[in-house]
C-alpha cells in the first residue's frame, strides 16, 4: 500500500474559499454531464457569510468508511488511496456516511449507491481544482499541508523582519 504522505487529496483553504459552489457545478458536469450540486463529489458549507469551505474525500490513512461497510463494497486503491465503490455490492445502507467525519461520501440521488471523490482520475487532475476561481482548492499531501502551515506561521512570527527584507 502507498505510504500516506504520498497520498494527495483535494482540500480548500478556508481563508480563500468564498462559497461560490463553482466546484460543485464543475464536479457534477464532469462526472454526470449536468449541473446539479446533489451529484457533486465536493460540497460547500456556508455556516454564515464569513465561514465558507468546500469538503471532499480526505483519503484517510485508515478509512473508517471502508471499515464500516458490512458488504465490503468499499476498497481503497493501493496506488492512490482513492475509495473505490463496488456498485454491485453497495446497497446504499449509509453506514459509511455515518463513519465519515467529513460528510465526504454521499448517496447518489439516482443510482442509490454511494459516491465519492476520485480525483478525476480519468482526466489526470481534479477538475474542481483546475476551475476554482479563487485558487482556494489544492491537490496536496498531508505533508504539504503541514509545510504550508509551518511557513504561514513562521511568516507571521517574523512579519516585522520580513518587512525589512
Amino acid at each position: 500500500m502507498v505510504k500516506v504522505h504520498e497520498r494527495k487529496f483535494v482540500t480548500a483553504d478556508p481563508d480563500k474559499c468564498v462559497g461560490c459552489q463553482v466546484c460543485e457545478y464543475i464536479c457534477s458536469f464532469e462526472k454526470e454531464k449536468a449541473f446539479n450540486p446533489l451529484k457533486s463529489r465536493i460540497r460547500v458549507v456556508r455556516l454564515n457569510p464569513l465561514v465558507n469551505v468546500s469538503i471532499a474525500c480526505r483519503l484517510c490513512e485508515d478509512p473508517p468508511c471502508v471499515a464500516a461497510c458490512p458488504r465490503d463494497a468499499l476498497t481503497p486503491s493501493e496506488k492512490t488511496g482513492i475509495i473505490m465503490v463496488d456498485e454491485d455490492k453497495c446497497n446504499g445502507c449509509g453506514w459509511c456516511i455515518e463513519a465519515c467525519d467529513y460528510g465526504a461520501i454521499m448517496i447518489h440521488p439516482e443510482r442509490k449507491v454511494v459516491f465519492v471523490c476520485d480525483l478525476c482520475k480519468d482526466k489526470g487532475e481534479p477538475q474542481c481544482v483546475k476551475w476554482c476561481p479563487e485558487e482556494a482548492l489544492d491537490l496536496v499531501t498531508s505533508d504539504v499541508l503541514a509545510q504550508k502551515a509551518r511557513i504561514a506561521a513562521t511568516k507571521k512570527l517574523f512579519q516585522e523582519a520580513l518587512k525589512i527584507i
Binding site: 468564498v18 462559497g19 461560490c20 463553482v22 457545478y25 456556508r46 464569513l50 465558507n52 476561481p133
Partner: peptide, 19 residues
Amino acid sequence: VAKIIGCSSCAMRCEHVCV
C-alpha cells in the same frame, strides 16, 4: 471588511461582508 464572498456560480465575488 472581514471577508469577500461570492454567490453560487460566481467567478468574481463581490460581497463585502463587514463586521
